[in-house]
Design a protein around this nucleic acid. Structure first.
Lengths: 160, 160
DNA sequence: TACTGATCGTCAGTATGCTGTCAAGAATTC
DNA sequence: GAATTCTTGACAGCATACTGACGATCAGTA
């Protein structure tokens, strides 16, 4: 029988588990209550003001049913505003509030620290290599998940 | 602002996301309904008959509150038996049923296929290197999560 | 304009995964 | 032996993630 440590799926789960734990610890220590998922969403909206939920989901590879709850909670915390689009009445345009902007800025060092802590067992070269290999494996498997990453730079890439 | 692809935490989530999707797809195609978590638990019990839930949790790095639900569902499917220990009336001894054993055996090829599919974008050498780096990073961060991996070979290692 | 199909956001349901708490029982200390 | 402490397993509650379904809306076409 194969050992768990020989199964990339098991290693993936463990690595992610630690990533979330480290993120929580660092962000909480900084005095904030933001999950990794909420942070990523908030940061993405900050970079792309007025983005709709589906595009946001594609940008950070979330399922569209997951985004609903995440945006709900961010809006409830007053970090995000959600209003109906004038061009498409189905869509909701997202905007970061002033409080959201401040939070994002204040929490950034903790997020950075969490990223470094996650790979602190590796040398600098190893860290780079790990990220390269993860990116490569992810790129090859991107379409296998229900929530693939979508390139937002090409406006019409999703309607093709 | 840093790109998502430069954040190991984001890559960890994506990789795990794809791992779960691939696992589900392969196992479903084989005609079974087992989640990655359920498979790992079932396999661990199979290798360690009579194990209690806490030790099982440590063996595969699950939180002890998560194990409860997982074992519940496995028992409900008739793959696992849970009975009170005679030595410790708090503990539940876990046993794989005959149906569980057959399921485990039948589903193994699909699990193997999922593991290979997950890293199919990498060369053989790269696959080995990715696993080595993940193992190293995980080992360094093991204690940072609420559900660290526990060595079961040393009997008294958990009471120290 | 009416029909058809696709898309946006939401919901119900299920399964992890966590924090925090609790009762029952075991282990340790006095 | 009694009190204290620890451990096992369960629960409520919350936050991802997914499947599958749905209403509302938009886009294209007959």
């Amino acid at each position: 029988m194969k050992d768990n440590n020989d199964m990339p799926g098991h290693l993936a789960r463990r690595f992610q588990q630690i990533a979330v734990a480290v993120f929580h610890a660092e962000v909480e220590e900084a005095g904030y209550d933001l999950t990794p998922v909420q942070y990523a969403a908030l940061a993405a909206v900050s970079t792309n003001p007025g983005i709709d939920q589906i595009t946001l989901a594609g940008l950070i590879a979330y399922d569209r049913t997951t985004i609903t709850g995440v945006v709900d909670r961010l809006a409830q915390k007053g970090l995000l505003e959600r209003r109906a689009s004038s061009r498409d009445r189905r869509a909701r345009e997202l905007q970061v509030t002033e409080k959201g902007r401040q939070t994002l800025e204040a929490v950034s060092p903790a997020v950075e620290a969490a990223q470094e802590l996650l790979v602190r067992g590796l040398t600098g070269d190893e860290q780079q290599e790990l990220m390269r290999l993860l990116r490569k494996a992810i790129a090859a498997g991107n379409e296998l998940s229900r929530a693939p990453l979508r390139d937002v730079s090409a406006e019409s890439s999703r309607s093709g």
